[in-house]
């Protein structure tokens, strides 16, 4: 899939490119609004990532142009100016998602995947793990076709995030950022991830040992698929 990255911070743009390229996206970088505007007018993209704080261009204007010239593209707004009004404005003008800086690259990827699922109208994203089957759309987990209802919303969120980033070690800060991202509180430790994983294991063990949920010592957790 083709991604246009419009970001004036060179260092950030190149990190985005490295990450997305590593995840099989085809990336193009634009460091200013003007060249981005030209690219949007001529090329077709699947994703356009727009930084609102461009020095030479109003990011929202760029969004308008993108919607006009690239109606198929999904636009994600990236900005450090996380003001609430901007947020409303951006989504009203047709942005598909909004990520306030600083964001985790994994979060960006999962948002992009969610957009893809939405766009292609995938009814059920079923994932089989051992004898468990997980429906990412309906947010349910079943064992041999029998629904398990002991898993809480938070626990499902954790599993879904790890499935989305399967075969990749996710650190506690990454996991806690995902499940507690909207909460602003003054703890900076993410010990509670361990407690959640412990609970998930305990609940699933009642059916079958979840061998696919691996603890990577000293680093974090991963789901092997």
């Amino acid at each position: 899939m083709n991604v246009l990255i419009v970001e004036d911070e060179k260092a950030l743009a190149s990190e985005l490119e490295i990450f997305l390229t590593g995840n099989n996206y085809l990336c193009e970088n634009c460091l200013d609004g003007k060249s981005a505007s030209e690219k949007i007018a001529t090329n077709q993209y699947d994703f356009i990532l727009i930084d609102l704080g461009l020095p030479d261009y109003d990011g929202l204007d760029l969004l308008k142009e993108a919607k006009h010239n690239n109606p198929e593209a999904a636009c994600i707004i990236l900005t450090a100016r996380a003001e609430v009004f901007d947020r409303i404005k951006g989504l009203d003008m047709g942005a598909d998602d909004y990520l306030p800086k600083p964001f985790s690259l994994l979060e960006l990827q999962s948002r992009m995947q969610a957009i893809v699922r939405r766009k292609f109208g995938l009814k059920h994203t079923l994932v089989a793990l051992g004898n468990f089957s997980i429906d990412l759309t309906d947010r349910t987990i079943a064992f041999n076709n029998a629904l398990i209802n002991t898993i809480t919303k938070k626990e499902f969120d954790l599993m879904a995030y790890m499935i989305l980033h399967k075969n990749r070690t996710l650190t506690r800060p990454q996991l806690s950022e995902h499940i507690w991202g909207s909460v602003v509180n003054d703890d900076y430790d993410s010990n509670y991830i361990d407690a959640h994983i412990k609970n998930i294991r305990k609940k699933l063990n009642a059916y079958e040992s979840p061998e696919w949920l691996e603890t990577v010592r000293g680093l974090g957790y991963r789901i092997n698929l």
Binding site: A80, A82, P100, P102
Partner: peptide
């Protein structure tokens, strides 16, 4: 926010 964002991305990519 921007420098933090860059650092975070760099660390994640290195990881």
């Amino acid at each position: 926010m921007t420098p933090i964002s860059i650092l975070q991305s760099k660390i994640e990519n290195m990881f």
